[in-house]
Design a protein around this nucleic acid. Sequence first.
DNA 1: ATAAACCTTACTGTTGGAGTAAGGTCAAGC
DNA 2: GCTTGACCTTACTCCAACAGTAAGGTTTAT
Lengths: 128, 128
Amino acid sequence: MKINQLSKLTNVLSKTIRYYEDVGLLPKASRNSNGYREYSSIDVDNLIFIRRCRELQIPLEKIKILIQVQTDTTSSCSEVDLLIEQQLENVRKTINELSLLEKTLHTLAKSCSNDIVGECEILKNLKQ
Amino acid sequence: MKINQLSKLTNVLSKTIRYYEDVGLLPKASRNSNGYREYSSIDVDNLIFIRRCRELQIPLEKIKILIQVQTDTTSSCSEVDLLIEQQLENVRKTINELSLLEKTLHTLAKSCSNDIVGECEILKNLKQ
DNA sequence: ATAAACCTTACTGTTGGAGTAAGGTCAAGC
DNA sequence: GCTTGACCTTACTCCAACAGTAAGGTTTAT
């Protein structure tokens, strides 16, 4: 199949598929006589895997590792466990940081009931 | 004062101060005879204001607006209110998205008790 | 005199693509 | 046979908000 069909099957833009090939996340696609990229169902599976990882906000470099680990099916999956665990930790950390931010912003948003910029409590608070 | 002292007083890197000047967030600094940038206590205040906004993850373009609004101290501060409210909404939306992500990752992290990559439940889950 | 600390501009790299340009290919309809 | 539109190609720039590095000038202290 051609790149546009792969795109539709996987819900990943053609542009993005080419980009993944560029950065080595996907192997170099084989080309047919006119130079168009030619894909198979294996590529569909690989790309869905990548898309699922991206949905979990796993960075491309870590997805590379996840792909490579699978080339040796007898190896330990502790690396996979660790990587997912780290990703979970990252997300939790970010949530905590944003929760603090939310509190601050909420307090700030409520602080001003004036109408004139010169008296604005929000701006005053931002200057401390 | 010179850029490094401004940097120390505001906790903003010299590099970043120059960058803010480049993108028009800070006015062009005056220069003394040797070409070094020269700052005053007004710059300290402005930069602290910017830093506080950045701590709230307000984008530079919106900080520009907040600065500009203050040039006319008699104007309404409804624009300020709105901007902070929008920022609060952004943060809340991101927190919600990350919370969903956290659940998925947590479930995923617990799913595998194997040791062999070929049997790894995490990887299987990522392939669906 | 020289070394350390500081200043300058300018260019590149980061992340994960999106946008655009400029062109080649292919199938359908007239 | 010719055009039109959909699709494909590479290559380049752009986004946010800086950080890193190069290559050089200045000041201050020893």
